[in-house]
Design a binder for these strands. Structure first.
Length: 880
RNA sequence: GGAGGUAUAGCACAGUUGGUUAGUGCGCUCGCUUCACAUGCGAGAGGUCAUAGGUUCGAGUCCUAUUAUCUCCACCA
């Protein structure tokens, strides 16, 4: 059991308790989800962070959202599983390890495949652990007993199983296709892995002479070095300028090869000269044209981007940059270069190393997308999976409807090796989950596995079920699949979300999750994307060290709209930290007063007017926050809690409770403390999913808790409290009166410590509420009078929802100032009354608006008119 | 070329199915060592909700157009 409140530090000091609490949670096993048929399952799989380094703000946001939702669902009684894991991140990690080796003066070939993989596993352990520790620092309530890694035995089994399955169904094939090649990583890339960047370049216009000497055709190109691989020039079949040329041969400059002029619809008449050089080996469109016209494919580039023997003796061995220069020079010398224009166009880059990618014809493995995309589109159309916010489904559709076959082989070492085996003797290929003993074709026993590994996203695509035991039929898989929700940023909808959806449908027969909650990305203070090159990244751990995990978490969800980007600034976290401090101190206040007091159960004693007011409001907050969380509106829920705790509970109820605590003993005091404790405990529960540490820590100090954890029943509104609505509204008058008095004292420069008398009409507020007004507004005595005449001294009038009251401020009253103040109030009221009158005179409004609203407006008008009348009378009196 | 987002106080942003006197944080002004908290308390100032139309009894919220700005997809040599 926790020690007494006296040991609570005066300020919120998260460092003192966060790590200890996490251990306590772990020890209690409360994060471990059970397969419990009596409960409804709720399951989120964590988007696995890459083991390339450490967590960034994006992870912090993603994990905060998931943890908040998971904790909420768990408290609601679901068997809530949040399954953590990590991604081997094939290419990204390999790039990092290569870099690291470079520092030692080593290359991949120096250490060999086995040596390299050894290093990769060392790396995995080192950074993998670091990431887990970071996730724990954030307070994430994930189930570590089920932690997964995309390269662990089980996930690897799932990968092989799926590969073989797709291959047998004819959905995976191997073939020569044009793919994106990164000459620096020396691997193929999928379309999604290429980023386009606009670059200023040139358009070179080159003259290709006819074989028969009858002139020439001019073509334009942005990549003159590919001229060496040209096997045709294409024109539009409807282009009359070239009608006679089609079928004739041209002499390829610098090479001397004869190439035909072909007609193809792909060519636009109006662009450039209307003639295009065709390089099937180095351009995706040209490749297609080549297929249609049966053109030879001449690949002139090596894997590192340099030119090969096919390029000819003169150019062989040059880098692509060198080649461009030399070739342009040679073209100019040979009289082939017509002109050079400035031209900006998009250049594809590798998403990992940012080298310019080369479209190259190469033998690779592909997933046939058409048959998989179709049901995946259907499923989302039918809302089997719903995107939140909905607009992201359009992005998904757009991609899915236009998706091309997915290149899944990578010329890398770190990853799942392709389960295809080649007979050393006859070359026969066998695709199987494990290496066959002998070749099924010739019986030879030496088989070599395919050298390539799979795209890292191939294993990610299986994440929602590979982590639950697939391909085995496990209890977990049965209970937790489909997952309930996936939470991720919009930038990996294509890479990941889309591929999980078609994979889930294909292999499990069901979509992987019923909802996808998409959030934005965390930008820096200036709205820029956080990136290594800009050096503007912010380490969440540093923020946690400085402000505490709860502060970071709260600042990441508060005031953030679903799906939209946000800027991170310390100021916001500081404000969240202040809120934590507020919670901390409000709790200290309650707990310190509870010492030695035997609290009562709610419902066993009479409530005061103020008690009913706060309890009624508490009900409202429970209702709102629950509703918001169920719709994943975390920002709204957090905002409501912030307001309730600070502006209602602390600013008002705690202050209202002070007279009872300090000026009474016995029942009144015990009752008030019981309400204070009840509201505090409820609020801590509501806050717990957002800020688990501070709430748990405080909870440990609560009377009667005795080692219980917070993770328990989610609060429900209490019917009885909702029936206090009338008293709640009535109490708002008291609050308004207090505010008005404070306002006037402020404007009249009356020191807050100076107590004043107050005259009030009978029945304006309940006499039992007088004590609140005295304490909170600095009033010495309240006297009930029939009218102003009775008072006999100079007063200022206090107009509030409680009607008119009077304060004798004696010499302090500056008549002119008071008159100006009254005139101002009158003006404001007149405007407001005008608005109300207009609205109520409108027949449409009376007829069509909800009755409640009309009534409310009428009451408002009446109140305002009454006020106005009194103010006018007061002003008139002063003018006499 | 196609698609989408955003435009609300000096700054950063909320605003739930149309119905408040349009909110929050930071900043600003004035006043407070008030017995939980100066990481605080009290009182304020500050907005024709981008522009022009429309729908409606009623529009920050829905529709259309315009302007500005951001993003994604495709990529014509």
């Amino acid at each position: 059991m926790k020690s007494k409140f006296k040991d609570m530090p005066k300020t919120y000091s998260p460092k003192e308790f966060e790590s200890a609490l996490y251990e306590k949670w772990m020890d209690s096993g409360c994060f471990t989800a059970k397969v419990d048929k009596k409960k409804e399952p709720f399951c989120i799989v964590m988007p696995p962070p890459n083991i390339t380094g450490q967590l960034h703000m994006g992870h912090a946001l993603d994990d905060t959202i998931q943890d908040t939702i998971t904790r909420f669902k768990r408290m609601q009684g679901y068997s809530a599983l949040w399954l953590p894991g990590k991604d081997h991140a094939s290419i990204a990690t390999e790039v990092k390890i290569v870099e690291e080796m470079k520092k030692e003066g080593l290359t991949k070939n120096d250490v060999g495949r086995e040596g390299f993989l050894e290093r990769a596993w060392v790396w995995t352990r080192k950074y993998g652990n670091r990431i887990s520790e970071q996730i724990k620092r954030l307070g994430c309530s994930c189930d570590w007993s089920r932690e997964a890694f995309t390269m662990d035995e089980h996930c690897s089994k799932a990968v092989a199983h799926v590969f073989v399955d797709l291959y047998n169904k004819g959905l995976i094939y191997k073939g020569d296709r044009i793919i994106n090649w990164c000459p620096s990583c020396k691997t193929a890339l999928s379309d999604a892995e290429v980023e386009y960047e606009e670059q200023a370049s040139h358009l070179w216009h080159i003259r290709y002479p006819f074989e028969d000497g009858s002139g020439y055709i001019t073509v334009a190109t942005t990549r003159p070095e590919t001229i060496l691989g040209d096997t045709a020039v294409a024109v539009n079949p409807k282009d009359e300028r070239y009608a006679d040329a089609v079928g004739k041969n041209l002499v390829l400059p610098l090479v001397g090869r004869l190439i035909p002029v072909v007609a193809d619809d792909y060519v636009e008449k109006d662009f450039g000269s209307g003639a295009v050089k065709i390089t099937p080996a180095h351009d995706p469109n040209d490749f297609e044209v080549g297929l249609r016209h049966n053109l030879p494919v001449i690949r002139v580039m090596n894997d590192d981007g340099s030119l090969n023997e096919q390029a000819g003796e003169k150019y062989c061995g040059l880098t692509r940059e060198e080649a461009r220069e030399v070739i342009v020079d040679d073209l100019r010398e040979g009289g082939y270069l017509v002109k050079i224009e400035d031209y900006t166009h998009n250049v594809g880059q590798c998403y990992r190393c940012h080298s310019t990618v080369e479209p190259i014809v190469s033998k690779q493995w592909f997933v046939k997308m058409q048959p998989l995309a179709k049901p995946a589109i259907e499923a989302v159309k039918k809302k089997k999976t719903e995107f939140i916010p909905d607009r992201f489904s359009k992005i998904y559709f757009n991609w899915m409807e236009n998706v091309k076959d997915w290149c899944i082989s990578r010329q890398l070492w770190w990853g799942h090796r392709i389960p295809a085996y080649y007979c050393e003797k006859c070359g026969h290929m066998t695709v199987a989950e494990s290496k066959p003993d002998k070749c099924p074709e010739c019986g030879h026993t030496v088989l070599n596995q395919d050298e390539d590994v799979l795209d890292t996203w191939f294993s990610s695509a299986l994440w929602p079920f590979s982590t639950l035991g697939f391909p085995d039929k496990t209890a977990d898989l049965d209970y937790f699949y489909p997952n309930s929700l996936l939470v991720t940023a919009y930038d990996i909808i294509f890479f990941w979300v889309a591929r999980m959806i078609f994979s889930g449908i294909e292999h499990m027969g069901e979509v992987p999750f019923s909802e996808v909650l998409i959030h934005g990305i965390v930008r820096d203070k200036l709205g820029r994307k956080m990136s290594k090159s800009l050096g503007n990244g912010i380490d969440p751990l540093e923020v946690i060290d400085k402000y505490g995990a709860d502060s970071l978490r709260f600042s990441l969800v508060q005031g953030v709209a679903p799906g939209s980007d946000m800027r991170y600034m310390d100021e916001k976290t500081e404000s969240a930290r202040n809120f934590m401090n507020k919670i901390w101190n409000a709790s200290r206040f309650v707990l310190m007063n509870c010492e030695g007091v035997k609290l009562k159960e709610m419902g066993t004693f009479r409530l005061t007017h103020a008690d009913k007011w706060i309890l009624c409001r508490l009900n409202g907050v429970i209702k709102d926050v629950t509703k918001n969380l169920e719709k994943y509106e975390l920002g709204l829920a957090a905002g409501k809690l912030y307001d309730f705790v600070w502006a209602q509970f602390c600013d008002w109820y705690i202050e209202l409770s002070k007279p009872a605590l300090y000026e009474t003993t016995g029942d009144a005091k015990v009752n008030t403390l019981s309400v204070l404790t009840y509201v505090l405990e409820t609020v801590l529960k509501l806050l717990h999913p957002f800020v688990p540490f501070v709430t748990e820590e405080i909870y440990g100090y609560m009377p009667g808790v005795r080692g219980k954890l917070m993770m328990q029943k989610w609060p429900q509104p209490v019917k009885k409290f909702s029936s206090y609505r009338a008293q709640e509204a009535d109490f708002d008058k008291v609050i308004d009166l207090i505010k008005s008095i404070r306002n006037i004292k402020n404007e009249m420069n009356v020191a807050p410590s100076k107590k004043v008398e107050l005259f009030i009409a009978g029945g304006a507020i309940k006499p039992s509420d007088f004590t609140y007004v005295k304490k909170l507004a600095g009033v010495s005595e309240i006297k009930v009078v029939a009218g102003k005449e009775e008072i006999g001294v100079k007063t200022v009038s206090v107009i509030s929802a409680a009607g008119e009251a009077f304060m004798p401020l004696g010499e302090l009253v500056d008549t002119e100032k008071e008159k100006a103040r009254l005139a101002g109030e009158i003006e404001h009221l007149e405007k407001e009354i005008g608005r109300s009158n207009g609205l109520l005179a409108n027949q449409g409004f009376i007829a069509k608006a909800p009755k409640q609203l009309v009534e409310k407006e009428k009451a408002k008008l009446d109140g305002n008119c009454e006020k106005l009348e009194k103010l006018r009378a007061q002003l008139k009196l002063m003018e006499e």
